[in-house]
Amino acid sequence: MCGNEALAEAAIIAGLDAYFGYPITPQNEIPAYMSRRMPEEGRVFVQSESELAAINMVFGASATGKRAMTSSSSPGISLMQEGLSYLAGAELPAVVVNVMRGGPGLGNIAPSQADYFQATRGGGHGDYRTITLAPASVQEMADCMPLAFDLADQYRMTVIVLADGILGQMMEPIVLDKKKRRKLPAKDWALTGATGREQNIVRSLWLGETALENHNYKLQAKYENIQKNEVLCEQYEVDDAEIVVVAYGIAARIVRPAVNKARQAGIKAGWIRPITLWPFPTEQISRAADQMRIFLTVEMSNGQMVEDVKLAVAGKAAVLLYGRPGGGVPTVDEILERIKQLTLPAKR
């Protein structure tokens, strides 16, 4: 199974009721898979006329309490930003998969990590956040789906799965997990027809003196709660490291052998891999920065996550970037070379 298909099947196992999407490379395996499997399960698949329509179909299905998702790649996700803002305002759960490609504009179809800002900063208009999960293997493409749906339902918000062309296309052996993870609150807000209860209204319009301000404070409290409770992060050999490489997704996998080789060459290197990009593992990185050391972020962009690392480090250590934009993929040797450049002169 390729990553895209693994993710699609895992979503179905996680109880996906409806998939809506529009074709774009490199995620076309997802709608193709869904078009076959969803009807087999008696569930909904619609190929929409645009990404704009797709996210609004998700909006509609989600408002009735159903588990709905869409998937796309960078240019398509840009089109969805209107819907993502409304989903945030209306507090509706949704899962959106972005199999990133090179940008800006039509860019190319090569793997990329240049939509980090868009995903972690809200992307659309208004003060909001979206939980952002960054899988790094085909297994994790699958494993993050039940988590994404649970988080979306628990917090009534959008969860973005931020993958890239490599993760979408590559194949690895996986095990699909069928167990349910979280206890979730009842969806008593859903539009199901007003039977024996007052009318339910789903909206993002808040008129009146401080109505919207108060609504925003409520959202903010929710986001703070998530920042406190939902950070996922993996680290390796950080305790004695002089240099810590920070990378997520596929870049984090390329970093691993580079760090191993650096250790073999006598350099005290380690790595931190944020799994949730928002909420960002600020505390973990801040703690690592308490000892004097160098942080190197490796990204398939001109440096986006590096800003979050800098915020976390807060001036306690040097934060540097090795970035490859426009679909460029760093190699193990390039990263190793950069680690050596940064550490060896310091020993002199």
Partner: peptide, 11 residues
């Protein structure tokens, strides 16, 4: 253990 990574798309 295995991984398989194809070149993909228009290329």
């Amino acid at each position: 253990e295995v991984t398989y990574m194809p070149s993909y798309g228009a290329e």
